[in-house]
């Protein structure tokens, strides 16, 4: 028991550097879509993560920081204006959002299980899909040749 406690104390020294940084632009979307994305997705896919106290402690911090870091690399709503600068990238991100909503792969099951905020209603899912499909079509048209 003492060894486990000592090990747990020791691993606290290994810090994870993931923090919130500044946003480069606000997401432009209808209010219902924006509200659903903010509630269910921003916790991982933005720079507005609300870090609960318990994720300050290893080994949970390693897992959570790792997941958030990976999620932000894939899609960071705080970098939305940056994506729009390159319409091809915006189209790709919107296509992925549509795919994730359609398949139900996002938010991940374990997050839906842990947090009521992560549960998206069918109506919200449909609204996000419509927004993503229309946005993707517009981005593809906007792409300079």
């Amino acid at each position: 028991m003492a060894i486990v406690a000592a090990a747990l104390m020791a691993i606290q020294a290994i810090r994870t550097p993931v923090r919130n940084s500044g946003a480069t632009g606000e997401l432009q979307a209808p209010p219902d879509v924006q509200a659903a994305l903010r509630r269910a997705c921003y916790q991982c896919h933005s720079q507005e993560t609300n870090w609960p106290w318990y994720v300050q402690f290893a080994p949970l911090s390693w897992f959570v920081h790792g997941r958030v870091s990976a999620a932000r690399r894939r899609l960071d709503f705080s970098a939305w204006r940056d994506y729009l600068y390159d319409p091809g990238t915006a189209a790709r991100k919107l296509g992925a959002i549509d795919q994730m909503m359609h398949s139900g792969a996002m938010p991940p099951w374990y997050y839906r299980l842990l947090s009521a905020r992560a549960r998206i209603t069918p109506a919200e899912r449909a609204a996000i899909e419509t927004w993503a499909i229309e946005g993707r079509a517009a981005a593809l048209k906007a792409e300079p040749q």
Binding site: R73, D76, Y83, D86, P87, G88, T89, R92, P144
Partner: peptide
């Protein structure tokens, strides 16, 4: 480019232009 927030598919034989801020 995760650093520059860019993601584009380039098919074989294709040339694309990626716009950077």
């Amino acid at each position: 480019s995760f650093d520059l927030h860019r993601e584009r598919v380039v098919r074989p034989g294709e040339t694309i232009t990626v716009y950077m801020a």
